[in-house]
Simulated assay, not measured.
Amino acid sequence: MHAISAQLLPDTRRRRLPPEVRVAQILDAAYDVFSTRGFPHTRIDDIAARAGLSKGGIYAHFDSKDEIFEALLNRTLKPIGIDEPALYREPVTVERIVDLLGNRLYSWAVSAPAVATLRLLIAESARVPNAVEQWRCYMDRTIVAAVRTLIVKGVREGTLRDGIAARSPSLLIAPIAQACLAEVLRTAERTAGELDRARADYARLLHELLALRHAA
């Protein structure tokens, strides 16, 4: 009888979320609090309150505020994923390069989360000295390497022009870095129209550097 009654009672216990879901919630909360208060003035209690957790719930996943900050940097400053097999499987066109760099990567670089997190990183770089170097290495080993692979493949297939961009693909990413830095230093946000025009100019630059030139 007791067993039957127990089965009929509603389960009022707090459901456990998968660790990856809980960590994402904590990092979302940390982003909000760090962006509002700044790192020095943020306490674990503030992050816990924003995430709807106890302080113990935070410590179940992170040992310190510094560890949360570094995890947030790693999550936010790693841009779009690169499908490595597709680099070799699909034909390379200028339009594909423009989509990868001019649309996806550029949009990430000027997005509010990336800009706000970079501001935090600059302000707290002494606290996490390895974060900047880790991010630079990530960009070199993933984004720049992927662009290099695409361009070399396109030149070999005869769909892209062999020129300075093929020899130094990091030059293609420099305008994105400049746009990101400009947003970080800006005190007033650019309008959507200004961003669209800047992105369109960048797309035209990619076309001029990579498109094949046909004889008239």
Rank of each mutant, 00 (worst) to 15 (best):
H2A: 10
S5R: 13
A6E: 14
Q7E: 08
L8P: 05
L8W: 11
L9W: 11
T12P: 12
T12V: 15
R14A: 14
R15G: 11
R15K: 14
R15Y: 10
R16V: 06
L17I: 12
Q25A: 12
Q25N: 13
D28Q: 13
A30C: 10
Y31K: 05
Y31G: 02
F34D: 04
S35V: 07
R37V: 09
R37N: 13
R37S: 12
G38P: 03
T42P: 01
I44G: 02
D45E: 15
I47G: 02
A48W: 00
A49V: 11
D63A: 11
S64H: 07
D66S: 11
I68R: 00
A71I: 11
A71M: 12
L72E: 04
L72T: 02
L73C: 15
L73R: 07
L73Q: 08
R75L: 12
L77C: 06
L77N: 03
K78F: 05
K78R: 07
K78Y: 04
P79Q: 04
I80M: 11
G81L: 07
D83I: 05
P85E: 11
L87G: 01
Y88D: 10
V92Q: 01
I97N: 01
D99V: 14
L101G: 00
L101H: 03
R104H: 15
S107E: 02
A112F: 09
P113C: 07
P113Y: 03
V115I: 10
V115L: 07
L118D: 00
A123H: 09
A123G: 09
P129W: 09
C137N: 15
Y138K: 08
M139D: 05
R141I: 12
R141F: 14
I143A: 00
V144R: 07
R148L: 09
R148T: 07
K153W: 00
G154W: 00
V155Y: 00
V155D: 03
R156P: 02
R156T: 14
R156M: 15
R156S: 13
D162M: 04
D162K: 01
I164W: 05
A165Y: 00
A166E: 03
S168P: 09
L171N: 08
I173W: 05
A174N: 10
A174M: 14
I176W: 02
A177H: 14
A177N: 15
C180M: 14
A182V: 07
L185W: 12
R186D: 12
R186H: 10
A188S: 15
E189G: 14
T191I: 09
A192D: 14
A192M: 11
D196W: 13
R197C: 12
R197D: 08
R199Q: 13
R199A: 14
Y202P: 01
A203Y: 08
A203I: 09
R204Y: 06
R204M: 06
L205R: 04
H207F: 04
H207L: 03
A211S: 09
A211L: 09
L212T: 02
R213Q: 12
R213M: 07
R213V: 04
